[in-house]
Amino acid sequence: MGHHSNWPEWVYVGVVIALMVWVGSEAWNAERLVEHIPADAEVIKVTGQQWFWTFEHEDGTKEIGELHVKVGHAYKFEITSKDVIHSFNIHDYVVLLDAVPGRINTVWFAPKEVGEHAIQCREYCGLIHYNMRGTLFIEEDKSS
């Protein structure tokens, strides 16, 4: 023990550190860009409760379990919960944020194509957690 030179290990550790620095800075940069919310994003209030999602648009219309949005717009979700912690998730658009009672968490997204996507709850919230699902409908913007 200790009688041989240890340079291979130090080279190896150096490579691992360099890799981690690279991963870390890429991640930092990507997250910084992703989190920049466009100023014109429309607010959608998202409320989780055992075991369904409610959505309230800026104009006051409410939807339960279904969310209708338009291509070409940016949306900012303001997420909260009425009871326990849930996690609001549109996996296809990598939208994921906890719905925490007493807090409002924000995340944004901009739908790109017309289509339907699953909305689900990703944080354990009890009996029907497995089926706390909804549907996101992305529609064409007819007004413009």
């Binding site: 290990e9 981690m20 997250e31 989190e35 944020l97």
Partner: peptide, 30 residues
């Protein structure tokens, strides 16, 4: 990360996490 932490908080804990990797990797090397 998904509980609604600020960007800065997340960054701090990401760095703290990545810092543990070389030590684990040293065991594999050994």
């Amino acid at each position: 990360y998904a509980t609604g932490m600020s960007f800065t908080e997340k960054t701090v804990f990401m760095i703290g996490t990545l810092a543990a990797v070389p030590a684990s990797a040293m065991h594999v090397f050994n």
